[in-house]
Simulated scan of single mutants.
Amino acid sequence: MISFSSKAPMGNRFRGRIMDITLTSAVRNNVLTLQMIGDQQSVIQNRLSTGKKVNSALDDPRNFFQASSLNNRANDLGRRLDGMGLAIKTIEAADKGITALTRIAENMAAVSKQAADSNSAAERATLLAQFNELRTQMINVARDSGFNGTNLLAAQNLTVAFNEDATSTMSVTAVSWVAADPAGVPAGADWGDADLAVGAAAIATSATAVNNAIGSLRTQAAAFGTSLTTVKVREEFTKGMMNTLKGGADGLVLADQNEEAANLLALNTRQQLSQQALSLAAQSEQSILRLFG
């Protein structure tokens, strides 16, 4: 560029103006090529630094919004995944409670068998106290089998949502074993009656209730086990679906680092060639000056 900077009064009006400069076709083409290469280098360097070929809707509106939709759905499923994890722990807590209740019930069955074999009213009365204490522990265990505010052994049903809009759910029906008769076992009575026949009948009634309770506990454990398996299957499915969604989104916006690096290397080479060509074009103009030398 050439600018007028004369201090003469008549030249003041030209101060700051730029003369029109005419470039040769060869020089102009090389300058334009260098400008285009610089722009492309900037784009590729941005892709390499961010790892994405689509960073905004301006780069590719279709891929950008489609990837956003896929990522949003994956995030929604991620929140459902957290709920499934809590549901699994809730069912597992109830299952551990049933396991403990079953062991207590088996001890109660052993106590009732020992009482049935005894011919001493005093011994039966002592065993009755042990029986009722074990029954109290059944209630306590059932009360302590909750997780995250939900206890499937205390009549607190559980609902698990599997998809992002909660149209796919599963309900786990709770039982109420924290009331007067845990798992259907009433308090024992009259074991130590002076009439041994009356005591034997009362013991038999308690033994039958305990045996029925053990059956109920095993049945309920199987039901909870089925629910637990279902939730775990849906959890694994959701994890796989999230990976699929995120993989699809990444395929729309992520850049191939190897390809972009190769493109940048090729552009650097082209830039060096264009700079050399520009230098040669300028030299051809300078040769004209030598004619006036």
Results as ranks from 00 to 15, higher is better:
residue 178 V to I: 08
residue 209 A to R: 08
residue 63 N to Y: 03
residue 65 F to D: 12
residue 250 D to R: 07
residue 150 T to D: 01
residue 55 N to I: 03
residue 124 R to H: 02
residue 96 K to H: 10
residue 197 A to E: 04
residue 72 N to E: 12
residue 271 Q to S: 15
residue 266 A to Q: 15
residue 1 M to C: 04
residue 174 A to Y: 04
residue 173 T to L: 06
residue 36 M to Q: 15
residue 32 L to E: 15
residue 40 Q to A: 06
residue 168 S to L: 07
residue 141 V to Q: 05
residue 288 I to V: 09
residue 143 R to P: 02
residue 268 N to F: 10
residue 266 A to T: 13
residue 57 A to K: 10
residue 267 L to N: 08
residue 50 T to K: 03
residue 145 S to H: 04
residue 289 L to I: 08
residue 289 L to D: 10
residue 125 A to C: 03
residue 258 N to T: 13
residue 4 F to C: 10
residue 25 S to R: 15
residue 190 D to N: 15
residue 207 A to R: 11
residue 24 T to V: 06
residue 45 Q to D: 05
residue 257 Q to E: 15
residue 105 A to Y: 03
residue 157 N to W: 02
residue 205 T to E: 11
residue 89 K to N: 15
residue 184 G to A: 08
residue 290 R to A: 12
residue 248 G to D: 00
residue 131 F to D: 01
residue 91 I to V: 05
residue 22 T to D: 13
residue 148 N to S: 13
residue 38 G to I: 04
residue 201 A to D: 07
residue 130 Q to P: 07
residue 3 S to Q: 15
residue 21 I to Y: 09
residue 276 Q to K: 13
residue 48 L to V: 01
residue 37 I to Q: 02
residue 23 L to N: 14
residue 184 G to C: 05
residue 287 S to H: 12
residue 191 W to R: 02
residue 18 I to M: 14
residue 168 S to E: 03
residue 197 A to V: 02
residue 123 E to S: 08
residue 115 A to M: 02
residue 61 P to Y: 12
residue 199 G to D: 00
residue 19 M to P: 09
residue 91 I to G: 03
residue 210 V to E: 02
residue 92 E to Y: 04
residue 201 A to Q: 07
residue 4 F to R: 13
residue 122 A to C: 03
residue 39 D to K: 14
residue 262 A to G: 11
residue 240 G to N: 11
residue 123 E to N: 08
residue 2 I to L: 09
residue 8 A to W: 06
residue 21 I to C: 10
residue 214 I to E: 11
residue 111 V to T: 11
residue 118 S to E: 00
residue 191 W to M: 02
residue 156 Q to A: 04
residue 250 D to S: 14
residue 193 D to G: 01
residue 193 D to K: 02
residue 226 T to Y: 13
residue 109 A to R: 13
residue 138 M to H: 05
residue 286 Q to P: 06
residue 262 A to Y: 05
residue 291 L to Q: 14
residue 292 F to P: 05
residue 45 Q to P: 06
residue 132 N to S: 01
residue 88 I to W: 05
residue 113 K to V: 09
residue 258 N to I: 12
residue 28 R to W: 07
